[in-house]
Design a binder for these strands. Structure first.
Lengths: 211, 211, 211, 211
DNA sequence: AATGAATGAGAATTCATTCAT
DNA sequence: AATGAATGAATTCTCATTCAT
């Protein structure tokens, strides 16, 4: 297989410009409708250069997803996981959602990629590792705060939470009726209400969600 | 402009077969990747015939969305809106989610269409009326149960609720870790928790979500 | 998989025109350099039509090879295999080469395809069945006239003979110094001399080619 | 025009490495499918360097062909042409084929280049001088042994012989059913039988190949 | 001189839509 | 009306060759 990694500084810069362009174009027209030529043009380069660094369109999406995850992880690294032990549910939700809010504010196009992954089988596979990386953190927090939960339960709550988040990120991206901060405020509220019974450890198993 | 509505019983049947086929194909490969020829073949007919009834691919999606809404409305008609006044929040959620659960059970491919509408500008426009129709019902219920809410608030809660629902429908469609009923049970739980403070009319305005 | 076979008479005609065009174009520029658009244009149609009937360029070559074989077989059917028993080696060679001469006269472009199959892995696979079909006949004749030969020997002589033929067909196709009939006369001579000791059944095993 | 000839010892080595790489790559994927980048990589250098020494891809093939001819000529120089006068046809054939056998054993990829030259017009022109050089030797031998043959006849027998050789070299290169030495043994046999009547000078003109 | 990035024309292939039969 | 053939613009991707570092 060919080696697509840039060897020179010039190449590294171009890769970043291409990813910026891809984020924009995906954001504007969606993954499917985005053409490699359009992306290249937006990055002020030629298709040839694009294909010098990416074997195909899918790989662009994948690299972009990875860059998002890396950015996200760098940002969340500021809040070490141990800090969560001493938090209330509200604080914990804040600790999750507020960085997300800022992240999305800076990366408005983020969501399209993940939304499109529902539409394109190939993209779904490309995105999956990134998707999975995001789950790790919730899992770790659940494990810390509710050690009595089974791995399956942690996973379930993590997944459901992620789908809620994705649902509301769609709201940010596509609804012109709901403004940015409203959605995040609602998201915090939803998550608080969802997680509160789960996090109260003195309760009976919350999987049956009974009071 | 041509008239695409079927004039005879045979035509109506063919349209339905085409929509069935379209639902399947959209479900399998997504809207973008679905080809008109594939849809026609799945309906055991020819492209030529397909274009007899639909001016273009978008129109198929639109008609399909409309058929979904009609089916949904027929199903929910069984529960007249006045009945909601005497319900607890749990009952109300049940009254919403259980029919949805059954609807989705019968129309597994439903979600893809709505997910794809996030990806394709054209499709979004085609789907929008259907999307809007679904919002009417929540709005009506809110109006009935919390007449003190402003139209904007009703709309906001309706929209947010819809995005949560969409988020979890994606879980049904794409996650092989979460099974059908688990998702719907979680969805009910989430909605209950979300709506409860909103529906408690003796509370202060829930928009600020303070206890 | 899609069905590429023509369903209407019109389609069948177009397929034949496309194969004619392909033969020409392959003959002129070779398989690799032949473009599907060029072939389509030569057949006075559009690429789209070409791809209606052939999944890819390789398939065109394959179909063409098959048509050659079919033509060839129709022509050789006139000389039933039993007739070979009563022939001298010269007559047998004649019975092989003269129809080949006529076939090539009518299908000048034939050779390019088989020559190109040495150059393109994909093409080689596509051509192989046709190639193999041609071997059947020599094999049958050897079996009839020299029943004492082992299958391996028959195959060897058949293969070598075929490579000689191919070699000289290249001469017809590419050499502007050797004219058509000269090459075939030489070919007959070569084959006669090659086959004579093999065909003389009273000889010792001809594999050692001793007098 | 630029001067592409290597000026230093290091350059000469690099050219040779590039030709080695080219031979390999042509042998593996054919001339058309071989990319300059692949050749450069195989030679453990970069395209940029490749173009330092060759103006284009065709020139690589040409240089390679020339190197083959030079190698071949060095090898055959051991057998001065006068020695042929005292040989039987069998010995003469041996004197031709055995060095060829050794040459091909050492240069397995040789044939692809010449086969590809049938497929690519441009390559054919590049190869032609090399091709022609190989003909000189047969011509010289014919002239020596059969001074009564016309130049045209010598040329004809030389060409036909060369096409037979090429045909069987293809067998070596592409047939996995015929092994290396079998093919050369058969080749010797074929050439012996072909040349014998031509070389018998007491015969009538062999062009009519009558006994 | 060496590396590998940059370019862009050109190739194969797809597919919504129109049209002939 | 029904079928499936026809069209060609658009898309992804390749690669010989040139250029910047």
């Amino acid at each position: 297989m060919r080696d697509y990694s840039p060897k020179q500084e010039r190449g590294r810069q171009r890769v970043n410009r291409l990813l910026d362009a891809a984020a924009e174009v995906f954001g504007e027209v969606g993954y499917e409708a985005a053409t490699t030529i359009l992306i290249a043009e937006r990055a002020a380069t030629s298709v040839g250069s694009l294909y010098q660094f990416f074997p195909n369109k899918e790989a662009i999406a994948k690299a972009l997803a990875e860059r998002y995850v890396a950015t996200w992880e760098a940002q969340t690294a500021a809040m070490p996981i141990e800090r969560f032990t001493e938090m209330t549910v509200e604080q914990m939700t804040d600790a999750f959602i507020e960085p997300l809010r800022e992240f999305i504010r800076d990366n408005r196009d983020f969501h399209v990629l993940f939304a499109s992954s529902q539409t394109s089988r190939a993209l779904a596979e490309a995105i999956h590792p990134a998707d999975e990386a995001l789950l790790q953190r919730t899992d770790a927090v659940f494990a810390l705060m509710r050690p009595d939960l089974s791995a399956a339960e942690r996973r379930r709550y993590g997944l459901i939470g992620r789908y809620i988040v994705k649902g509301l990120l769609a709201a940010v991206a596509y609804s012109d009726e709901l403004d940015f901060d409203t959605v995040f405020d609602e998201l915090k509220h939803v998550m608080n209400r969802y997680l509160e019974p789960i996090m109260r450890r003195e309760e009976t198993l919350p999987s049956d969600h009974s009071p």
